[in-house]
Write a protein that binds this DNA or RNA. Structure first.
Lengths: 351, 351
DNA sequence: CTGAAAGCGCTTACAG
DNA sequence: CTGAAAGCGCTTACAG
């Protein structure tokens, strides 16, 4: 009668099969079924194993995760919380690469990843916060420094392992920090522009205060001010293509043409590059333009964009590794993990 | 003594507080605590409510999701399975936008989203498949048509609500299909190129057979063959920047310059555009080039790329809506949901 | 109106 | 070696 995937008679069909159903059909104890499901074949006869496996296949049995989770008080999943005002929070390539690295690391170790994006004011209502749904959290925050500090303190009070991405954490908070060396990368970029003759740099930043952007500003500012150059920051709304062009146009109208423009990321760098070209200023001969993060996008422009290579994927893997170690009770020495970045010189600054 | 977030005495600290702890501290029944947690204040005194809320805050109590899930046999989460050979499966902007739409739709309704990317041969080992971890699934497949059909049949046997993205599903399978009208969009694009004088079109496709790419090929092919034009498909490896350029160069070397090139997506379109420019052929005067999907990228090229606007975010929302409806027992009329796309003409084909 | 108690589906210490 | 039984933390039908 049974067709493998079918769930048996109509009467049985009404509810999903449980381990008890399998045990009954195979005429063994639940413990034996549990051992088969979890591949503990230690002291089990070949015959028993086959009978159980047949029963599992016949019923189409899949263990219900919540029974196991409840018993072991582990959920075998990690939550990724992204605090962003934009509903397309995932569209940012940095976050996308980070999540990919985290997801792969966890999935390979049989952990799940639950993603949740939200606006800052909705944080307390988030299911991942309100309820205890995952074993640990990885969080990526945007917004004003004071608000972020408040959120970080709230996360610390949760009593779960938490990794904060792209941001330092207070000592003694019990939190972990994983980030790329935005400051050093930006400093190196500024040095490169300086070496190409730039004595005034315009930095394009989105209005929303991502901590990484703050670091990039600091890195460039320090280098340039130490060399008695001018450094100014232009706020560019949502950092999108149009907003960046508009803000840049206003800045140039007010302050004249700078010899170099640093985009806070590649998208802003390319927006600037194209706007300059529209105004008849070609990089690198008339003006120098750079981006940040190098997620394929840098190749799409003409000329290709000088940028800094981000290890976003590796940041995700690192965060996953830390959280799983903590959950397994392994010691994690360092609270702060800073991954190096690398300058990638393209046609937009190179002659 | 208590500092709000603290968990009381050291003895208590060793385990996370449960609803029983709260009930004990507030001197009420667990049922009352449960009512407060779930905001059912029906027949409850103001006094009682406050006492319970104070106890919750003092203990830092958060309900454990698995207890509730087990009792209600609902997990309040949906799984997103992406079958892709690339570890950076999430880096594809289409998937990224889709996941963002799905995630937001679910999160707003207090459902979680579990993402899992995997290679086709690892599908059976995926936690989301092997165990019953989520209430429903949303799947996005790549690979050969026959393999995809096999996977789709496996998903149908799971006995959970499943939406398959960007691909038709067999009638009677019980699955749902949500996709954009790639065929119509591609046909419209082909008509546009034809109207601009192209009588031979080269289509750039990645080696991996995404169903959407197959649809785009069919849409363009039908239109062009009906008009006695030539239509050829060039396989471009992983569809990345370098692979696309290499494949295109080989195709042109072998067959000469076509009057028009259709990129399977925007990334491939821009790679083609730049390679042509490097060879001294400028769009749109020397050659016509188009992309597909219009996720910001199209603006980055010079000239901007003619493309087709994808409703990827809305596809994700639609999938979420269907799954939640099914889970709530609401009738979902249609098994197939095809969202319209829109031609977006850019400088790469327009004079 | 209120609360004690059963039970969801697992895992595993423990008794036989 | 094997299996009956307790218990994880919730929700809610039901008895008082």
């Amino acid at each position: 009668m049974s067709t493998g995937n079918s769930q048996g008679s109509k009467a049985q069909r009404s509810r999903r099969p449980t381990i008890a159903d399998v045990a009954r059909l195979a005429n063994v104890s639940q413990m034996t079924v549990s051992n088969v499901v979890n591949r503990r074949f230690g002291s089990m006869g070949q015959q028993t194993r086959e009978t159980v496996e047949k029963a599992i296949a016949e019923l189409g049995y899949r263990p219900h995760a919540s029974g196991r989770s409840l018993k072991l008080s582990k959920r075998f999943s990690i939550g990724m919380v992204v605090v962003d005002e934009s509903p397309t929070f995932l569209a940012d390539p940095f976050i996308t690469n980070l999540v990919a690295g985290l997801s792969n690391h966890l999935n390979q170790r049989d952990y799940g990843l639950v993603v949740q994006g939200m606006r800052a004011d909705h944080l307390p209502e988030a299911a991942l916060i309100r309820r205890h749904e995952t074993d640990a959290l990885c969080v990526f925050l945007s917004g004003e420094r004071a608000k972020r500090a408040q959120m970080i303190s709230d996360f610390a009070g949760l009593g779960q392992p938490v990794v904060v991405m792209q941001e330092a954490v207070p000592k003694g908070s019990g939190l972990y920090s994983v980030r790329q060396d935005d400051r050093a990368g930006s400093a190196e970029l500024a040095l490169h522009l300086h070496a190409r003759g730039a004595r005034h740099v315009l930095f394009l930043a989105p209005d929303v205060a991502w901590p990484a952007i703050e670091e990039r500003i600091e890195g460039a500012r320090t280098v340039l001010l130490a060399r008695e150059c001018r450094f100014s920051v232009v706020q560019c709304g949502d950092g999108g293509f149009d907003a960046t062009r508009t803000a840049l146009a206003a800045a140039v109208a007010a302050g004249g043409w700078p010899p170099a423009i640093m985009g806070g990321n590649d998208q802003m760098g390319i927006a600037a590059l194209k706007w300059c070209a529209d105004q008849g200023r070609t990089a690198p001969s008339d003006i120098l333009v750079s981006g940040f993060n190098a997620f394929e996008t840098w190749r799409y422009s003409t000329p290709s964009l000088t940028t800094v290579v981000s290890p976003a994927y590796e940041l995700g893997e690192t965060a996953g590794g830390i959280l799983l170690s903590v959950l397994q009770g392994e010691p994690v020495r360092r609270r702060e993990h800073v991954l190096p970045v690398r300058l990638k010189i393209g046609g937009s600054t190179d002659v």
